[in-house]
Amino acid sequence: MLTVLVTGAGGNIGASMIRGLCDWNRSVHIVGTDVSRYYCFLSQADATYRVPPASDEAYFDRLSEIVERESVDVIVPSNGWEVRALSQHSETVPAVTALPQGGAVAQFQDKWRLSQAFADKNVQTPKTILVEDPSDVKRAVDNIPTDYIWVRGIGIKDYPGRKMRDLSRIVDWIDYHDGWGSSTVSTYLPGDDLTWLGVYDDGTLVCSQGRKRLEYGESRSWGTGAPTVSRTIHREDVNELGKRSIETVDNAPHGVYFADFRADEDEVPHLTEVNPGRLGTTSSAFYLHMGLNLTALLVQIALEESYDAPPTFNALPAGFHYISKANCDPVVVTDEEIESEGFEP
């Protein structure tokens, strides 16, 4: 029997990937791992183990022990920390993965380095300044000609991004997060909040899908965290820009990536970040609801098996909304249903 290990099994992405493996028309023994002694209880895997953080030197010893004990064939990580660790030390663990190259992962996960990588490429990004002390904040406020600027950390889930303008509040916000040298301020773009997910197999784009985020009802800041409402879209510019954003940095893309964009006042998308090697909170659940089992596809790519490939672009129909909130069962609703059955105020 095929054995697949899902990391972060007690989290929302890990839970969706486990559902994908359970829905697959194939017998799979599912092993879950999680860092949290509490979230392990949320895992729906057949067997669940606690592991140290991926930054801990004991991480690979513990993971290898689990892989050997459970005869794991494939590892599918669900978070950026384990994507980075596994992509850089894949030979350490006796199981296969479908992950990008370690160097590309490191560059994608550093938002400042990523913005600089596109400075002389044909990919538009917001004007961005690295802030190392308060004088950089003043320079940014003086030189970014928008009503607001976007302040955020540059690493993996460093700290929430926030739309701000007041100089003293920006300095206090960065101070509070001990973010000098690891924060950026950027042009705040007021247009559509867009994302594009692509799955690659050894340099070839297998399938992709674009989406527009509509509401962040449970997030502390717009554009941070998972949206509560998002909608599938078919946009040629987003498809082209998403593909180019990945392939500009990674010359042999492999596995899954999702690129985020914000549009300017003329509705031109600008790249804001790329998340390599993992599914997102919404895509892992939404696309599975729509019949696109990306977890199963990634396992087949890792095993170098043949598979039925979805359409390269626009893998799902446009105009479907995914609506989800904590403690509520998510629903998928069409444009037509919202127009004809939407609740009146």
Rank of each mutant, 00 (worst) to 15 (best):
L2W: 07
T3W: 00
G8Q: 02
G8S: 11
G10T: 02
N12D: 11
N12A: 09
S16G: 09
G20E: 02
G20S: 01
G20D: 01
C22G: 06
D23H: 13
W24E: 11
V28N: 02
T33I: 10
Y38P: 04
C40T: 14
S43T: 10
S43E: 05
Q44F: 09
A47S: 13
R50T: 14
V51F: 00
A54V: 05
D56M: 09
D56E: 10
D56C: 13
E57F: 12
F60E: 12
R62C: 14
E65P: 02
E65Y: 15
S71F: 11
G80A: 07
G80D: 11
E82C: 06
R84F: 04
A85R: 03
S87N: 06
Q88F: 02
E91L: 12
T92M: 15
P94S: 14
T97P: 04
Q101Y: 02
G103R: 13
A106L: 09
A106G: 06
Q107W: 09
Q109H: 10
W112D: 10
L114I: 03
S115H: 13
F118L: 11
N122F: 10
N122K: 11
N122E: 15
Q124T: 13
K127T: 12
T128M: 05
L130C: 10
V131Y: 00
E132C: 06
E132N: 15
D133H: 09
P134A: 08
D136I: 09
D136Q: 10
P145G: 12
I149Y: 03
D158S: 13
Y159L: 04
P160A: 07
D166F: 05
I170W: 02
I170P: 00
D172G: 10
D172K: 14
W173T: 08
H177N: 13
H177Q: 06
G179I: 05
P190C: 08
P190I: 07
L197Y: 06
Y200P: 04
D202V: 08
G203W: 05
T204M: 12
Q209A: 09
R211G: 06
R213S: 00
L214D: 12
L214I: 15
L214R: 03
E215A: 08
G217F: 13
G217W: 09
T228V: 14
T232D: 04
E236F: 05
D237C: 12
N239H: 12
K243W: 05
S245V: 06
I246Q: 01
T248V: 15
T248S: 11
V249K: 01
D250K: 04
N251H: 15
N251K: 15
H254A: 00
H254K: 07
G255N: 14
Y257L: 06
A259Y: 03
F261I: 04
D266V: 08
D266Y: 13
E267P: 10
T272F: 05
E273K: 03
G277N: 03
G280P: 02
G280Y: 00
F286S: 03
L288G: 01
G291W: 07
L292Y: 01
N293I: 05
L294A: 01
L297R: 00
Q300K: 12
I301W: 01
L303C: 09
A309D: 07
P311W: 11
N314P: 05
A318K: 07
Y322P: 03
I323G: 01
A326G: 13
N327E: 12
N327M: 15
C328Y: 13
P330E: 12
D335E: 14
D335P: 09
E339H: 06
G342V: 13
